[in-house]
Nucleic acid binder design. Structure first.
Lengths: 211, 211
DNA sequence: ACATGTGAAGCTATTCACAGCC
DNA sequence: GGCTGTGAATAGCTTCACATGT
């Protein structure tokens, strides 16, 4: 396989392109140009072409990109051609909101397991999945063939639980708890922190309307 | 103004430094070095010094940074020295989870208003705040002196509501709905999209798998 | 001796502009 | 004529290394 390393920044834009392509597909658009994509996602055409070129020569000169074919290629690159199996650890209000969110399945993810520490939640139903004890993390993740874990746990307990998730062989974690995780190099982590986002917005407010 | 423009990437790291400084403060540490900060946040000391130098000459050569003074400076730069007033639009499961989250107040934000479109929610209590109708957005945001709005609305309705939020003079929006927002140049938007984050993680799984 | 602040170097990402193909 | 793919130019970010100050 070609070992051309795709830049981190490009990877972060691929999901955005995919969303835009799915929109075009719904609009029964057979072909789309880099200019059109750029307008939809708010960037410029050169950026779009450069990004897509990392995946291969996917367009046709003089014509544009075949929407169906491009969706297939981008989905494949992102590894979401088939549904990926995910689990949620922590079924509090946030975990519950995520489990009930229907958008994940359209984006390539199936929440197949939910774990919580609270004895009165264990065994009850969480939107179609039975809540398991965090004591069963190892076995449960393996049994359900989970590849991605979403942490929606209290800050204080998160690292200890992550250690066990990592121990169970999970290589991708989405962390919603406001703590920096320590994980081995071969485990990918993405941190979602709304307080951080709010503070960044606040910075722009403080700077005043000069942008 | 003579102030050099602070790079976007630096701004994104300031909240992380702030969190780490607050930790040091709790640990009763009077002074901290760039090396220590770098270790805590997972970067290198040169990066920390360069970032902080954009805010002014805040350290003392041969000594390090005074924790209290640095917290004050970073908080001021981020505009979170005083609590900022925020509102949530959309009191579904996600909006509810956010309202009940206690971490925002520690990070400089006070959720002072909640809006929803559903008639049976309007007038009821949402964790200490009475839910208002989205019909009152304009008046409500002004009355409560809201500066930042968090959108936790269904995708389809989000843009129309954002237009009204912008019409009410709001200049900072945190968007949790999976749609790209159209706003004037002088309005800052940050997008939180967990599907996107999951897809990025999926990319790394897809890459790692073939090796 | 020790740690910051900062030009300069090194690296990465974005944008330009045009060759190549339809 | 239209649009992609891409080397080259540009802009921006990170890291180095050392002068500067305590």
């Amino acid at each position: 396989m070609e070992r051309t390393q795709i830049p981190e920044t490009t990877i972060q834009r691929l999901p955005v392109y995919l969303r835009c392509l799915l929109q075009a597909q719904q609009d029964r658009k057979p072909v789309i140009s880099s200019v059109e994509i750029a307008e939809m996602v708010g960037t410029n055409a050169a950026q779009v072409r450069k990004d897509l070129s990392y995946l291969g020569e996917l367009g046709t000169r003089g014509i544009g990109y075949d929407v169906e074919a491009l969706i297939a290629h981008v989905s494949k690159s992102l590894g979401v051609s088939e549904l990926r199996r995910a689990a949620i650890v922590g079924y509090g209000r946030l975990g519950g909101a995520l489990k009930s969110y229907t958008g994940f399945s359209d984006r390539g993810f199936d929440i197949v397991a939910v774990f919580d520490a609270s004895p009165d939640k264990i065994g009850t139903d969480a939107d179609g999945v039975t809540i398991r004890s965090v004591d069963e993390l190892d076995a449960g993740l393996a049994e359900e063939g989970v590849e991605i874990v979403i942490m929606a746990t209290p800050a204080a307990e998160t690292q200890a639980l992550v250690d066990r998730v990592v121990g169970a062989g999970i290589k991708a974690i989405l962390n919603l708890a406001p703590v920096r995780l320590q994980v081995p190099d071969d485990v990918a982590v993405r941190q979602v922190c709304m307080s951080t986002d709010l503070q960044i917005l606040s910075f722009y407010l403080a700077q005043g309307g000069e942008r």
